[in-house]
């Protein structure tokens, strides 16, 4: 059984990574969803695989054998909800970029990619002086 879960995690990860390497935002969102599954399952399995022993107390005798580890479950539960929030924000950003920019490419436009040339201190001073004269004339 462990091998099944591990291969499932591997397959989901591979699919997720492949999709986040695509060029369009929707594929990246899908890829992140797949990665979320993989990671949540991975976190969950850190409590090891246990069948038919949910962490819900059957009696109050203080006997604690026969239960699975509840802690990873609690962590994953909030992780699932938070990852929904994250997906929603990313989707919204993708949508906004599409509406605002007209395409859903994940990359920056070619002309914006390189950072502006380094400002030397002298250039900084000059730009400052220019700024001051500009400010003065305005």
């Amino acid at each position: 059984m462990e091998a099944l879960v591990a291969t499932a995690i591997g397959a989901l990860t591979a699919a997720g990574v492949y999709l986040i390497l695509r060029l369009r935002s929707f594929a990246v969102v899908l890829g992140m969803t797949m990665l979320t599954y993989a990671i949540n399952i991975f976190l969950f399995t850190s409590g090891r695989l246990v069948i038919n022993q949910p962490p819900i107390l059957r009696d109050h005798s203080g006997n604690i054998t026969g239960y699975t580890d509840p802690l990873p479950q609690a962590l994953v539960l909030t992780a699932i909800v938070i990852s929904f929030g994250m997906t929603a924000v990313v989707v919204m950003m993708a949508l906004g970029a599409f509406i605002e920019g007209g395409d859903d490419y994940i990359n920056m436009p070619e002309e914006d990619r390189n950072m502006p040339p380094l400002l030397t201190v002298e250039a900084e001073e000059e730009s400052e002086i220019a700024g001051q004269t500009k400010g003065g004339s305005a």
């Binding site: 091998a3 879960v5 591990a6 591997g10 397959a11 990860t13 990574v17 991975f42 695989l49």
Partner: peptide, 19 residues
């Protein structure tokens, strides 16, 4: 696909080893 496979195999193996 190669990069993705590497990541998948690595993560799956890690999960298996842990379990």
């Amino acid at each position: 696909a190669f990069i993705a496979t590497l990541a998948g195999v690595g993560f799956g193996a890690l999960a298996y080893a842990m379990m």
